[in-house]
Design a protein around this nucleic acid. Structure first.
Length: 299
DNA sequence: AACCAGGTACTAA
DNA sequence: TTAGTACATGGT
């Protein structure tokens, strides 16, 4: 295995908190099952021992996924200017935000709606074990997270078998749309912007690169046209799957943070709370939201 | 045995 | 816009 030092990095809380459902504990190691790779991590005091499969020694994949090169110290300084966030940070030092795969994040958070963390993990684990492609790892056989194309071919019945209930059609339809957008994206490489209808133009932007080119509110609006994707799932996708840091997803806990921790007037209006976070924490909103989420959830 | 879960879609006022 | 409700299934 390779070794990479990691400083001020709360590995366990980062991998197994509420932001990422792809990691499993296997014999004192942490394994992530992605669409095209498996990341294997063995924690160590000063960093991690790691390996990737089926392509081995993929340093860029690991460092990028773990956001290991992010300047956490200056981030920490900014967050400490707020006393409540500072308190949360004391309890969860070194909590990072990972850089997950866009499509996988979208599907996972569609599954997550109205489920608790253990139930989410169980469904995703089943999705992988039932429908993932096999890869050989050190003589054993493991499975990747199923590709979005594969998910698009699954029947409602197959999807129901992983315990996602009414979300099955959301998953199926969203996966179908993403694969279709990917293929039209390839046929029309870049901008020879001929007469696109608003509709087809929007669709062509519903790709990883298309969304990356849009401001957060616009990208969220577009993501919300997908079935099963409301503001919360859209924001999770933007933050965890597209690297956005100027917003934070507002779930039940987000509303509690807004009302109880910061003594704001109770509301059930997503936009109001979302804007409050972004105006208060600016470019570090995602980090503030993340550490406050872990803080209030375990209070 | 209820009640809740990192919500969303739908309906009616 | 805002308020209420059904939804499949599993965790506690």
């Amino acid at each position: 295995m390779n070794f990479t030092p990691l400083s001020n990095y709360n590995l366990y809380q980062t991998l197994f908190g509420g932001q990422d459902f792809n990691w499993q504990e296997i014999n004192d190691e942490y394994w992530a099952f992605l669409q095209h790779a498996i990341i294997r991590v063995k924690p160590h005091d000063e960093g991690i021992f790691w390996q990737t499969y089926p392509e081995k020694d993929n340093f860029d994949l690991v460092v990028n996924y773990l956001a290991a090169e992010e300047d956490f110290d200056s981030l920490k300084l900014n967050l400490e200017s707020d006393s409540i966030t500072s308190l949360a940070l004391e309890k969860y030092p070194g909590l990072r935000i990972l850089k997950q795969d866009f499509e996988q994040t979208l599907i996972n958070f569609i599954i997550s709606q109205n489920k608790n963390l253990p139930a989410i993990r169980r469904s995703i684990k089943d999705l992988i074990s039932k429908f993932g492609q096999e890869v050989e790892v050190e003589g054993g056989v493991y499975k990747l997270y199923p590709s979005i194309e594969r998910i698009a071919t699954l029947s409602i019945e197959e999807l129901r078998s992983i315990g996602v209930g009414y979300r099955a059609s959301y998953i199926q339809q969203t996966a179908l749309q993403l694969t279709q957008n990917k293929s039209t994206d390839r046929k029309e490489p870049t901008s020879i912007s001929v007469e696109h209808g608003v509709d087809s133009e929007s669709k062509s932007e519903m790709t990883e690169n298309g969304l990356k080119g849009l401001p957060s509110d616009k990208a969220r609006e577009l993501l919300m046209t997908l079935p099963g994707v409301g503001p919360k799932v859209a924001d999770c996708t933007l933050v965890y799957g597209l690297g956005r840091r100027d917003i934070t997803p507002i779930d039940r806990w987000g509303f509690r943070i807004y009302e109880q921790l910061y003594q704001n007037k109770p509301t059930n209006n997503y936009e109001i709370v979302s804007r409050w976070f972004s105006e208060k924490f600016g470019k570090d909103t995602a980090y503030a939201g993340q550490v406050l989420f872990e803080y209030i959830r375990n209070a």
